[in-house]
Nucleic acid binder design. Structure first.
Lengths: 352, 352
DNA sequence: CTGAAAGCGCTAACAT
DNA sequence: ATGTTAGCGCTTTCAG
């Protein structure tokens, strides 16, 4: 139709290094080097190149260099759901470190479903991310899709809900210790029959929280009673309500509760209110997660903080480290220390 | 060092269409076409190609085709913060529609800071996203960076916190109507002096909620009293507490409150409790946002639901539409109808 | 129905 | 200090 447009006025899509090169009568490689402050390019050339680049509004084309370099500078993240404070914070941590190091973050949500998680992995591999950071979905048992990530030679970092048999780096809080501290705290407040709300056994975090609870009891010389341990899939508000009702109906005579989620703890407190059971005097309660609402419900809910943002930063740093070291990186198993946040719901001995 | 590796056994990075082509003695173009179900390729060839592709675990290289096509199939999203239920839900909506249509979603958080928002825009343009969906940060007043997106010829869709003078498509809820409904509801409950907690005037959502409130008063023949309108930057819990205290100290004698955020409503309710003011009998309260905690606080907080997921889906659909229509798309201003959720905090006339 | 060839924009050997 | 060349993997005219 039309001969090759030289310097026509028609709006070109985007300026490239060739445009800069032509304008300065240098080669594209020189431009490329100048732009990256290559040591063997003269200051004059660099300055000139940068000036033109700026003037014609040149934008480095990531896609092209990604193709060339075989790297996309994108980091894939899979979280169960964005609308949980915890994951939002982890995300912020990851993003912080990633963007400081020139990586973009591609986020997907699994909604806690394996099928979605598998799709997410495919999406991320398709997008040619340079690595994957994820928290395993609740319903995940078979791990083949995660093995595929490793098989592709990409760094894989797990956080929060992890799996040790995968040969991936991990970042978790010490759930055992968090649970131990929480239970210990209840004992110190004078509780002698402490119930525990837990989640599916195959999920590590719940397993460890359960054993932290058991150990704290044992160390205090208190008996462990299986009937005081109530399990549900999701530890939602409703689950907590159900459990509490069950405890009351069975007349278990509990005076303390350590719930592995703030939501379930809230459910229990609701039921207590409905039965005029006073919290904390009749029942002292500690949750887990430090959801924002714990601060302003009535009574304020004592809980375990999970260092969420720190967890994200750490995961991203481990990813970067593995990228850098290439094949011969060493796996890292990081454990952060959770903190007990004391609020009214557990303070029988008002220390004012 | 080493001559060009032909068919050596060394582990190649990833199989390409050339590998498939070689194996079948066809050209790469044929493979490319077969893979995309091009009509003029024989069924036999297609089948063979797909078989080999599957067998050698071929993965389509997005990056390469993005470079070639000048499209990245990535959609950039900027939200103020992921750890708010509302944005988490919007995200889920966007992702749903995007992934159904072959787009990946690149998410960044502005933390409600203009400077970060500007960086986010740069990041996304760098990553060569095909469009941007965002909710403007609270602190944003100058809009040059958003104009740059438009200048790059990319679709720009704003949601929730929008700006009409930008020539971008928008998705919002009808804040005016939501506020009107909330206020009207309070009036129907018998309130006669209704306070309002609002945010910065330059943010549309607060402006509209304020006018919905005014209109509802006017339509009911109630006077508007400027002293009953209290403004804060963030409408956080503390702000609500402060406002409520002020109302009490000044002895404004309010019997209803419509707060433009659930958090500030909660703050007010806390202060009421501390002063033995009963909610809803002495003061009926309606919030805005339908945060999850509104369901289980005591008393349950009436609020306005913002159709968050729907908002995300719609934004993504508009983006797709603009992509498809190219230059001559028509701007779309979509308005969703918010819903009043009645809970105990506002029900003076218990309708059981 | 299939192939050849050119090129998206950038970069890194390998030359000067 | 700079230029030449080739190629990352895919797609798409154009030419059979």
């Amino acid at each position: 139709m039309q001969t090759i447009a030289q310097n026509t006025i028609m709006l070109r899509s985007q300026p490239t290094i060739h445009d800069i090169a032509k304008e300065l009568n240098v080669s594209p490689s020189t431009v490329s080097r100048a732009l990256k402050d290559h040591p063997r390019i003269s200051k004059r050339t660099k300055a000139a190149v940068k000036e033109v680049a700026h003037r014609i509004n040149y934008k480095h084309n990531n896609i092209a260099s990604a193709l060339r370099a075989g790297k996309s500078y994108m980091l894939g993240v899979i979280i169960p759901t964005a609308n949980r404070t915890f994951f939002g914070n982890v995300l912020r941590g990851i993003e912080q470190v990633a963007s400081q190091n020139g990586y973009n973050v591609l986020i997907t949500q699994s909604n806690d479903l394996v099928e979605t998680e598998i799709k997410n992995i495919d999406t991320l591999l398709q997008a040619h991310v340079d690595g994957v950071i994820l928290s395993i979905a609740k319903s995940t048992q078979n791990l083949d899709h995660l093995k595929r990530v490793k098989a592709s030679g990409l760094p894989l970092v797990l956080f929060d809900r992890i799996n040790e048999n995968l040969g991936a780096s991990t970042v978790v809080i010490d759930d055992y210790q968090g649970a131990y501290t929480a239970t210990r705290h209840l004992i110190e407040q004078g509780c002698r029959r402490i119930a525990h709300f837990t989640g599916p056994k195959h999920i590590n975090i719940y397993k460890y929280r359960l054993s932290g609870y058991r150990e704290a009891l044992a160390d205090a010389g208190l008996p462990f009673d299986q009937e005081l341990v109530l399990q549900s899939q999701d530890l939602r508000l409703e689950d907590g309500r159900r459990h509490m009702q069950e405890l009351l109906e069975k007349g278990m005579g509990v005076d303390g509760l350590f719930a592995a989620s703030d939501y379930s703890a809230m459910g229990a407190i609701q039921v207590c209110k409905e039965h005029s059971i006073s919290v904390p005097s009749d029942l002292a309660v500690v949750g887990f997660m430090n959801e924002p609402f714990t601060e302003f419900v009535e009574p304020g809910l004592s809980t375990i903080d999970q260092c969420s943002e720190e967890m994200g930063r750490l995961a991203a740093e481990i990813f970067l480290e593995q990228i850098e070291k290439g094949k011969d990186y060493t796996l890292r198993q990081s454990v952060l220390m959770p903190k007990l946040i004391q609020r009214t719901s557990s303070l029988k001995n008002k220390i004012v």
